[in-house]
Amino acid sequence: MKSPVFFLVWIVVAAIVFAFGLYLKNDYFFFAGYTVLQYVVLATGWNILGGYTGYVNFGSAAFFAMGAYASVVMHKVAPLPVPLLIIIGGIVSGLVGLGMGYLTLRLRGAFFAIATLALAVVLQTLIVNWDFVGGSRGAYIIRPNTLDIAGLQIPYIEYLFALMLILAVCALTVARIVERSRLGFGFATIRDDEVAAEACGVPTLRLKLMATTLSGALMGMAGAPFPYYIGYLQPSSAFGLEYAVNSIAMPMIGGTTSWVGPLIGAIVLGTLQQVATVTISSAVNLLIVGLLLTGFVIIAPNGILGLIHKFRGQSDADKVGRRVIRETP
């Protein structure tokens, strides 16, 4: 499928999801759905660096928070429509990603992961001590009840949900394009063996910088509308541990080698968490991510995608190999 066609198909799917929400006439669908979609974007962003390139980033929450705080700054300086804030959030977090790449990409494996964790702590300390964005007190972002678009009064949460849907489709399209391009193959070579890739003439540093920037930008975009969703942004909620954990757990559960993996993981785990919050509703909630991760590591180390391939009797290596042969001119 060509990328524009892919994009259009998913836009249609998104429109159906949105229409289903309107049909239910139920704000809960939009609120719960927003959170799941936010995770789709976050997990897809993480997967570009973590899945395609093999660099595990524990600092997702920092990129998410940078996007959110970019919106808070803009809200105070010059209020802009949320779609523009998403772009600004993407640029800010993309730049943070680029900076992180320059500073840390000499590190590999666990050392890189620790460095990203440290980055999150440093950025959180910065925000806590920056009174303009509320500092440790937090910032109130009061959203209007409805948005006037061409005379139509649209409830604000439906607007945010629709934006997140479009953003999710864009993120998936970008991830798919990257996965199937020379860039994606470059990322895969770094994941498989960085030294060998370098020896073969793959410009690893440049590629890694592109991966950190792209990954950071997507995660920042996921965070940009968040202040309008939550209404009161505190450093502890923007830098919440659940963003770091979920953005790793979701691609791991779905499968990290393809754009579908984070999508499946985010929908499964995100929905499960939303449902568990209002059904089990006790500390057992917190067990879910842990148990699922442990279960998948043992039973399906390549995630749900890996399981599907296994059932079809087709190994990942075969699939990638065949695709390379088919798509390389």
Binding site: N26, D27, Y28, I157, I230, S237, E242, T277, A283
Partner: peptide, 20 residues
């Protein structure tokens, strides 16, 4: 419902309470 001391769960829970 248990909000897990996490502000991010609150908007969803309150719309569930009101709408569902």
């Amino acid at each position: 419902y248990d909000d897990q001391s996490n502000p991010n769960t609150v908007p969803g829970i309150y719309t569930k309470l009101i709408d569902v």
